[in-house]
């Protein structure tokens, strides 16, 4: 396993193990996530890629039987240290899920909710600005600017997912984790999300879990291949998809797995 070092290193994981009860889901994973690249996690179902993604903002804390070992840092700070404020952490490391999950509130409120609870807007005018900026960055503003008071759940699936991305962006995160953000979307909505990922790259460190290898190839610059809870290979996406070093990676991406 080569560790790529970057001058824009955002998160690091060292020797991470994850257990659900006595079942080990992740074994000794070490990886670096940097600001300049979109990092894709690929691998067959049950390989641990989503589990590992969730360790990056302590989403596994919500699973009673889950236990995480090893070290994960954000800007050099151990996110599992006792001094870490988990709510603050999840604002800094936002997450977008497989199924769009807007709150049953207005489009405006969906975006404003996070900044409000984190005290990020001092006035209504401030909040209006945050909402517009977030919706613009999520590529949704033009489609919803005249109906901000309508329910977020009334939007199409693709729009809902971009609303969720706007909601994640609104609290000004540093890292955005995406867990199969397009698997419930049609190809056009998928293309819009992929274009959005491309535009957000560099502003946020982005990590995306995807089952769609073409998507990993299209949106990421770094790809990590997981298998049976271990990180098999991590490297440049262009290398992984043209000339992977590991036979298991090759068998998976060429459709010979299993």
């Amino acid at each position: 396993m080569t560790q790529q070092t970057s001058n824009a290193l955002k998160m690091t994981a060292r020797g991470v193990n994850v257990f659900y009860g006595d079942k080990q889901a992740i074994q000794d994973v070490s990886i670096d996530v940097d600001m300049d690249n979109v990092t894709a996690f690929i691998g067959p179902s049950g390989c641990g890629k989503s589990t590992f993604l969730r360790t990056l903002n302590r989403m596994n804390d919500t699973v009673a039987s889950a236990r995480v070992e090893g070290q994960i840092t954000l800007d050099g700070e151990d996110i599992y240290s006792s001094g870490m404020d988990v709510v603050q952490l999840r604002a800094r490391v936002g997450m977008v899920f497989q199924k769009p999950n807007p709150f049953p509130k207005s489009i405006y409120e969906n975006v404003a909710y996070g900044p409000r609870i984190h005290g990020l807007a001092a006035s209504k005018a401030d909040m209006d600005q945050v909402v517009e900026k977030s919706l613009r960055r999520a590529g949704l503003w033009e489609e919803v600017k005249d109906r901000l008071t309508e329910s977020g759940t009334a939007l199409s699936g693709g729009q809902q997912q971009r609303l969720c991305i706007a909601r994640a962006i609104a609290v000004d995160p540093e890292v955005i984790l995406m867990d199969e953000p397009c698997s419930a979307l049609d190809p056009i909505a998928t293309a819009k999300i992929e274009e959005l990922i491309h535009e957000l790259r560099g502003r946020y460190a982005i990590v995306i879990v995807t089952h769609n290898m073409q998507q990993a190839a299209r949106v990421s610059q770094k790809t990590a291949f997981f298998h049976l809870g271990t990180l098999i290979e991590y490297g440049e996406t262009s290398e992984i998809f043209t000339n992977p070093r590991e036979t298991r990676t090759k068998d998976y991406i060429t459709g010979r797995y299993g």
Binding site: M213, Q214, A217, F241, T242, N243, P244, T249, K250, I253, T254, G255
Partner: peptide, 9 residues
């Protein structure tokens, strides 16, 4: 078929 890796080569 979107061939990858050694298939693509």
């Amino acid at each position: 078929r979107a061939p990858m890796a050694d298939d693509l080569r």
